[in-house]
Each structure stands twice: as C-alpha cells, then as structure tokens.
C-alpha cells in the first residue's frame, strides 16, 4: 500500500516536469519576438525592451528555464506585467470562488449522475434509459455558456428567484453564498452529469454481465442488494477514472462559467490575463491548474485501491 502510494507520488514528477517545460516553451513557440507579442500592437521599442529585460529574455534559453524553474520551486511565480503584483498573491486571492464552484459541481454531479446511471443500466432500453441517453446527448451538444444564459433568463430575469450574476464569499453567510452559487453550479453540472451518468450506465451494464452477478443471483440476493453491493462497487472504478480525467474539462467549464456569471475566480483571472497578454500570470495559472489535475488524479489512484482490493498489492 505504501509502496503503491510512493510509486504514484513519484510518477507525478515526470508529468509535472513535462508540464513545466510546455508552460515555459509556450512563449517561445509562437512566431516572432515574445516580448513584442506581450507588449501588444501599440508598444514602443522602449516598452518591448523593458519587457524583455523584466522577463530575462536576453539570457540564453536554458538559463532562462533554470532561473524560472528555480523560482517556481520556491513558490515564486513571478510578477504580473499588468498589475505589478506577485502572481502567487493574485492567484491566492481568487481561489475561493473557483473552489466553491468546482466542489459544488462535483457534489451535484455525483449525487445526480450515479443513481441515474445505475437505474438506466438496470433497465437498459427502458424509458428512463432512453430519456437519460437522449438528455445526455443534448447536454453534450450545448455549450455551457448557452446553458448559463438560458438559466439566467428563466430563473433570474423571468422568475426573479435567484441573483443574475456575481459571487458572495462564504464569510458573508451560507444563504447568499449558496444563492449566488446555485445557477453557476447547475449550469456547469449539466455536461458532467451527462458524462458521469453515461459512464456509470456503461460500467454497471458491463458488470451486470459478469459471472459473479450470476453467482449472486444464484444465492437468491434481492435486486436492490445486487445493484448496490455487487454491481455498483466494481463499476465505480471506471467512473472514478473519468471523474479524474474530466477535471481538465471542468477547468475549461469553470473559465467559461465564471465569465458568464461574473464570478471573480481563477477562470476570470485567466481570461483577463490572456486578453492583456499578462504572460507570467498565464504561466502561473496553467501551472496551478495542472498541479491540481495531477493532485486530483493522485486521489483517484488512491480511491482505486479503496474500491478494488486487487490494486492494493
């Protein structure tokens, strides 16, 4: 078990190394002078020179990389070109709304999608299954911002049930916090519920064809017990895997949802920084999101060993 954990932990090192290299090279991949790209169309030669100097672009590439990686490893993500504030500080200020949105989406998704998927698999081909599969196909086809605007139009503007936009921190009280979070979480959850329900359905359907399900039926086990104890648990491994992989998708959704609902989180910071070509902030954000992805998948690996004893050895 500890061996497994240690191995997984070590395996994240090459992944993060690749991420670091890609993030570092991003600026140098494009055509032309990176400093000119960052400075934008209306920059004077002095502006460009100043940026070049600040980012150390006059050094040889490998020196730049080593300097940068050394700073990153000590927690220094650089200084924003736009606001002159440390990137780490900018990111820390914006973490809460993004975490709230992501965790809310995760909870809503799992609570809704897993039971739906199991029910659809149990009566595969039945009305619930057809409705679910049809709904899922639709949810995949509509971009999250369209869903967001429809929800705002119906629940905030027409029915005036919930606030149109904005965010209230948890410190302001649970009710305003949840009222502001409700629509964004629902909007973002649509596609994930579709995804997880489909995967759960497929996985349970496959497990239901296993020999040990027949063994359980031969024991006289009831349907509910059969589904919960014999079918769902082994079926959860692929579901958890997809949740881990879908984290990357979630980040994309968060970026869009925060823009739609005007939530001051990391997603908004990302969009703003991209539009301002605030390169150190973009780098820092990609690094943080990638590290979060790697961390999530580390937890997923641990969950495997809880769910499936065969992986524990």
């Amino acid at each position: 078990m500890t061996g497994f954990l240690l191995q997984r932990l070590l395996a994240t090192i090459p992944v993060m190394a690749v991420v670091a290299v890609v993030v570092f090279l991003l600026l140098h991949l494009g055509p032309g002078d990176p400093a000119a790209v960052i400075a934008g169309d209306y920059a004077t030669p002095e502006d460009i020179e100043r940026i070049r100097d600040r980012l150390g672009l006059n050094e040889p590439l490998h020196v730049q990389f080593l300097t940068w990686i050394g700073q990153v490893l000590t927690g220094d993500l650089g200084i924003s070109i736009f606001s002159n504030l440390p990137v780490a500080q900018l990111i820390a200020q914006r973490v809460e709304p993004t975490l709230a949105l992501s965790i809310g989406t995760l909870i809503l998704t799992v609570v809704v999608a897993v039971p739906l998927g199991v029910a659809a698999a149990w009566r595969a081909g039945g009305w619930l299954d057809r409705c679910l599969m049809g709904g899922a196909a639709l949810a995949f086809a509509v971009p999250v911002f369209v869903i967001g605007y429809i929800l705002i139009y119906v629940f905030a503007i027409k029915l005036s049930l919930l606030p149109v936009q904005g965010y209230r921190p948890l410190a302001d009280g649970a009710v305003p916090f949840l009222r502001h979070l409700a629509l964004p979480v629902v909007a973002l959850s649509f596609v994930f519920i579709a995804l997880i329900a489909r995967v759960t359905r497929a996985s349970v359907l496959e497990v239901l064809g296993e020999d040990y399900i027949r063994t359980a039926r031969a024991k006289g086990v009831t349907t509910f017990r059969l589904l919960r104890r014999h079918a769902l648990r082994p079926a959860l491994v692929p579901v958890v895997t997809v949740i881990g992989i879908a984290f990357a998708l979630l980040v994309g959704g968060v970026v869009v949802t925060e823009s739609v609902f005007n939530i001051p989180g990391l997603g908004r910071l990302t969009v703003d920084s991209v539009l301002r070509r605030d390169y150190p902030v973009i780098q820092g954000l990609i690094l943080v999101f990638s590290a979060a992805y790697v961390f999530t998948n580390l937890i997923v690996d641990l969950l495997y060993s809880v769910l499936d004893p065969r992986i524990r050895e």
Binding site: E210, D211, Y212, R214, T215, A216, R217, A218, K219, G220, V221, T222, R229, H230, R233, P234, L307, D308, P309, R310
Partner: peptide, 28 residues
C-alpha cells in the same frame, strides 16, 4: 429467489470470475 441458495444452489465453471473481486470470500 427464496428457493435459490436455500433449496437449490449452483457452482459455475470459471472460478476466476464467479466470485466478486471487491468483496472478501467470507463476506460472500
């Protein structure tokens, strides 16, 4: 269902797949 396991029982061909991999054999 109430007869299965009590009045009649079955053993299958594949011992590798006939037992649930995530439950201990005692539980099963």
């Amino acid at each position: 269902r109430s007869l299965r396991g009590r009045a009649m029982a079955m053993i299958f061909q594949e011992p590798m797949t006939a037992l649930n991999p995530v439950l201990t054999v005692g539980e099963q």
